[in-house]
């Protein structure tokens, strides 16, 4: 084996893993992930969210819990820095926070801005990523664990707002490990999930919005 042949051989060897990646198209990966996440009936998970927004004078770290029950229940409870609860049942939002200390009922139909925010949140947490292909182009960043980068397509609502979204999945690919959203303004959000439990009966209290004390 001469020098040129050795270089060619080395190149060939080094290409094998890449070929392995290329065999798995984005669609294949998304379908696989959707299939693994499709049997999720309930979800409860802790989260830590780091927000770096220009509107705030510091990085805001939010801690709390998310509950999800298919098909129509979603709960977002935060413990730090403020106590806040939000339950979404179909198009109705019930919320409470310790500052105002009042339970508010909001229809998403009457609040398009909030509707958009909730829509985005549901989109990233639901695991139905195939449908996102119409709004985003997807790049596979890594396979173990699976890491995907979503870049908004032109003419979509996200295009003017979001630079990209990066999602890292758990090793078993049954749920998300972290979501990173980078905005075009430079603002960013990093959401990490901890102690995720799947298909465990959710305590009824999780779907209640009521005043809480620290």
């Amino acid at each position: 084996m001469n020098k040129i042949e050795m270089i060619l051989f080395a190149l060939l060897i080094s290409l094998f893993p890449l070929n392995g990646y290329a065999e798995q198209s984005v669609e294949d990966v998304l379908i696989r992930l959707e299939e693994k996440m499709s049997d999720i009936k309930t979800l409860q998970t802790g989260f830590v969210q780091e927000k770096k927004l220009a509107i705030f004078d510091r990085k805001i770290i939010l801690k709390g819990k998310i509950f999800l029950k298919k098909p129509n229940l979603f709960a977002w409870h935060t413990e730090e820095p403020t106590l806040y609860s939000m339950i979404i049942r179909d198009d109705v939002i019930l919320q409470w926070d310790e500052d105002i200390d009042q339970i508010q009922k909001v229809s998403m139909k009457d609040n398009p801005a909030f509707q958009t925010v909730v829509g985005q949140m549901r989109k990233w947490l639901s695991g139905i990523y195939m449908s996102l292909l119409e709004e985003y182009s997807v790049i596979i960043l890594g396979q173990t664990p699976v890491s995907l980068k979503f870049v908004p397509r032109e003419n979509t609502m996200a295009y003017n707002i979001i630079s990209h979204v990066r999602i890292v999945f758990r090793e078993d690919e049954r749920y998300i490990q972290e979501i990173y959203i980078k905005e075009k303004t430079g603002d960013s959000t990093l959401l990490r999930f901890t102690d995720t439990l799947l298909n465990i009966p959710v305590d009824a209290a999780a779907w209640e919005v009521k005043p809480r004390a620290r």
Partner: peptide, 30 residues
């Protein structure tokens, strides 16, 4: 405003909140 800004999809509402902290114009969006 703070609550909305802390949700993961806050990028969509940030410009609206900055230019309308009291939510005066929200009714017109509806």
């Amino acid at each position: 405003d703070y609550r909305q800004l802390l949700t993961p999809g806050s990028g969509f509402v940030t410009p609206f909140i900055q230019s309308d902290p009291l939510g005066i114009k929200t009714g017109f969006l509806s």
